[in-house]
Amino acid sequence: MADITETGVQTATATNTATNTATAAAPTRPKKRIKWETVGDHAVLIAGALLMLVPVYMILASSTHEDILIHREGLQFFFGDDGLENYNAALFEYGGFTNSVNGVTMLVNSMILGFGFAIGKIVVGMMAAYAIVYFRLRFATFAFWMIFTTLLLPLEVRILPSYEVIQQMNLANTYTGLILPLIASATATFFFRQFFRSIPEELVEAARIDGAGPVKFFIDILVPLSRTMIAAMFIIMFVFGWNQYLWPTLITTDESLFTLVRGIRQIMQAYADGSSTPEYGEAAALAIIAMTPPVLIVIFFQNWFVKGLTESDK
């Protein structure tokens, strides 16, 4: 083994000598300089990374300080000693008008919204996309357009009438009323349609010859093949659901149904009142709690996430 390595080194040296000779023989050859261009590239990227990082870092640092300090000096650059207290208050202290909500309740509600939205959207979307791509339907084009018209009309546009409809259906202050209207757009359907279309035709043909009907093909072939796509969609949809703000604000007036992001609004209202010193530390802690789950998911599953995001463009 050692011999081999040594021979390797020798060969390498020999090559080097050869290169050196070649260099000497060549009439002019610019000296190797520090690549200022590369340094510049890194500088720009570091500046960009700091731009993204610093504001969040300051919130994080401030979430470990007393309210009065932040009230006097603004957000902090260094960590303090009151972190435990602030996070304890943010998570376990009951607040709101009815004293029926604390951080943990909101966290659970956010989870329900994130999971419910992501799973609902994926299940409904995959089924519809399967029907559109793999079946000969007379009204397929009509169904397609009916579904895809919803693509770019976000809930915010039809917010008031949606609210009225939910009221009429007695779904206000329910998880159903919270989640279903958000599912009413075709992003996942469109995404899976694009993906199914990219799967080779021959696969369904081979499966048909192998005796697989539509249900078997879906369960045995299509779903396992879509695993990565499902994971990618799940991450995007989970983050999207978790981060919903306007709709939960309108549809949940019952504080026990508040999500973390919805809870931010309560903080802002306390802020606006200005009657007492706002609980800055607790607010910062709540903001950190509200962003941690989606941020971690995006960072840990970033390959899937990036794939899912950019595939939908095709």
Binding site: L203, E205, R208, I209, I221
Partner: peptide, 20 residues
């Protein structure tokens, strides 16, 4: 008759193997 019931077998140009 459905393809599965014709008792045939087919080899495709891109093989169409189930990748998973």
């Amino acid at each position: 008759v459905d393809p599965a019931d014709r008792n045939i077998a087919m080899v495709f140009q891109n093989y169409a193997l189930y990748p998973h």
